[in-house]
């Protein structure tokens, strides 16, 4: 069943200058949809439009059939739409524990401790670093905290903007493995990536965005072998 429905969305930072120009797709529970494309294609803008950080000028975003139009970012997370930005995705001056405490604060009081415990169980590295300032964590730990922070509220949709950026291949693998686990727990994941090989390896479906429009759609790993995809949008070496 589709959790998130995006219909002919047009979005951008300034009126009259759309970056996303009419994108439609659906995302189901327990599915990873990967969004690829060259720099400037509108991937991040689309992700931010879903999260509520960028204004949608036309088209709709619906969560289980309910329109999110006009809903501020701080309300979208309460409805289960979580977003992990590419940069500035943890509160660097606050401890790991405080980062998670802020995340669960929108949940009913009785559920908060349980959700934090669940996140620390899912990301054991964070449990050891609970008292550390997030800004002092390693790149990998930081990315795990960013994902944990978003996941702490048990969202139905988790959008991530280039979670592999700046990580070593080994850590990229670890992040993708976590996303697989999260997907298997029933979360719908929208994954924006530049690292096509790593992302397509975990993708159920993938779309390639070019100049604000969907240029190609396919089924995950098979796209790696599609010469048209490789040649046109991903560069020769995929």
């Amino acid at each position: 069943m589709s959790v998130l429905t995006v219909e002919t969305v047009v979005a951008g930072y300034e009126p009259g200058l759309p970056i996303v120009r009419g994108v439609s797709f659906t995302l189901s529970a327990g599915e990873i949809l990967v969004l690829l494309g060259p720099n400037g294609a509108g991937k991040s803008t689309l992700a931010k439009a879903v999260a509520g950080l960028v204004t949608i000028s036309s088209g709709t975003v619906r969560l289980r059939g309910v329109s999110l139009a006009g809903m501020a970012a701080h309300d979208r997370i309460r409805h289960g739409v979580a977003f992990v930005p590419q940069t500035g995705n943890v509160f660097a001056g606050l401890t790991v524990a405080d980062n998670l405490a802020i995340a669960v604060n929108i949940l009913p009081r009785a559920e908060r401790a349980g959700r934090i415990a669940a996140m620390l169980a899912l990301f054991p590295d964070l449990a050891a670093a609970r008292r550390a300032r997030a800004g002092l964590l390693s790149g990998g730990q930081r990315q795990m905290l960013a994902i944990a922070r978003a996941l702490a509220v048990a969202p139905s949709v988790l959008t991530l903007d280039e979670p592999s950026a700046g990580l070593s291949p080994k850590l990229v693998g670890a992040v993708m493995q976590k996303l697989r686990e999260i997907r298997d727990s029933g979360v719908a994941i929208l994954l924006v990536e530049q690292n096509a090989r790593a992302a397509l390896a975990v993708a159920d479906r993938a779309m390639i965005l070019a100049e604000g429009r969907i240029a190609h759609e396919g089924h995950g790993a098979s796209m790696l072998d599609d010469p048209a995809v490789a040649g046109l949008y991903l560069g020769r070496r995929v």
Binding site: A73, H74, I77, P85, V90, F91, A92, I102, N105, R149
Partner: peptide, 11 residues
Amino acid sequence: ENPDLARLAGI
């Protein structure tokens, strides 16, 4: 520290 991330965290 980070108003955008605060919004994303429901603040």
